[in-house]
């Protein structure tokens, strides 16, 4: 983060620096407006192609934009590597499964519920594990994912190990859109929110605090940064967005079992994408998710689905060797 900011601060030091306190070189409102235009263009382009599969595949790419952005709030900004993405994601999905059986709510409300549940679990795990540093924290998140998966597997109300079938609602809730298009639109909206939040954090007091924690936690604390509180905010936000990304999943796949909901590939992809794009800024996770997500979708259709996992490995190794600071790293010093 610092590197990217440092480079754009140089030519016009004082104005840029003072503007950043108030929300970055470009105001947050203007940025979100820009994002909305980009999102509308994406949706319009997908409509123009007029192929149902574009929405089906696009949904996955958008879902990864949200997951990668959410992961990066904790992993990129504060430097805590979370291996438990799948747990937060699946918790969101299973919240939808449970709600679907209890009270049929509109999907956006279910996404909010999934976000609250996963955010709360993020807060709890954070409280229990954030006293651990580095690798130890990562291992704890991995263990947490296993525990949550075991609990869900043994909870028959949401299908247990057999899985749960979800019947999509008959009526499409929005302008007679096809249901997959509706899911695509929801995920598009969520990615706009996630990216907007991530960027707002980056240029705020909170973002400076996160970066201080990432750079040197002891020095951060000595300089007034309430490190534990900030890390809890990061885990809750990160977990919450992952849960919201997972909430529409049952309606997307219409059949959800623990093995697919908690698949390790979510965790692996979600770490690989920000690393490939660059962890310092909001743009990195988007670049990584679009690049890797699209390649995986294309490879799944044209060659085989097994190849998509190989792609992650090859790209990750390639980037670690050739561009350790991701695609963003090519453009900043």
């Amino acid at each position: 983060m610092g590197d990217a900011r440092a480079s754009n601060a140089q030519p016009h030091h004082a104005p840029a620096a003072s503007a950043r306190v108030r929300g970055g070189p470009m105001g947050n409102t203007r940025f979100v407006a820009g994002l909305l235009v980009a999102a509308a263009a994406t949706f319009g382009a997908a409509r123009l192609v007029d192929n149902a599969y574009v929405f089906f595949a696009g949904y996955v790419v958008l879902q990864y934009i949200v997951l990668a952005t959410a992961w990066n709030i904790l992993g990129g900004y504060t430097g805590y590597v979370n291996f438990g993405t799948a747990a937060f994601f699946a918790l969101g999905a299973y919240t939808t499964v449970a709600l679907h059986k209890l009270v049929p709510l509109p999907l956006p409300v279910m996404m909010l519920a999934g976000g609250v549940i996963s955010g709360a679990i993020g807060l709890g795990t954070g409280y229990l594990t954030l006293r651990l540093r580095g690798t130890f924290f990562s291992i704890a998140t991995l263990a947490m994912a296993v525990v949550v998966q075991t609990l869900i597997t043994n909870w028959s109300f949401v299908g247990g190990s057999r899985g749960a079938y979800i019947v999509r609602p008959e009526a499409t809730p929005l302008f007679g859109l096809d249901y997959v298009q509706y899911l695509f639109l929801l995920m598009l909206g969520l990615s706009v929110i996630a990216v907007g939040v991530a960027r707002a954090i980056e240029h705020s007091r909170l973002g400076y605090g996160f970066a201080a924690i990432r750079d040197d936690e002891l020095a951060a604390e000595a300089n007034g940064v309430p490190t534990l509180r900030l890390k809890l905010i990061a885990t809750a936000l990160s977990g919450g967005f992952m849960g919201m990304a997972g909430a529409p999943l049952p309606y997307y796949v219409t059949y959800l079992d623990p093995a697919s909901g908690f698949s390790l590939s979510y965790a692996v992809n979600t770490i690989a994408m920000p690393l490939i794009g660059g962890t310092g800024s909001w743009l990195g996770p988007i670049l990584g998710a679009v690049l890797l997500g699209t390649l995986q979708q294309v490879a799944t259709v044209t060659i085989s689905s097994a190849l998509s996992l190989l792609l992650v490995g090859v790209l990750l190794v390639g980037f670690v060797v050739a561009a350790p600071r991701g695609i963003i790293g090519w453009f900043s010093r």
């Binding site: 610092g2 605090g209 201080a212």
Partner: peptide
């Protein structure tokens, strides 16, 4: 704070 400029270091 290694990824921050000197001015940003003081900002914390």
């Amino acid at each position: 704070f290694g990824t921050m400029t000197l001015a940003e270091n003081l900002r914390i």
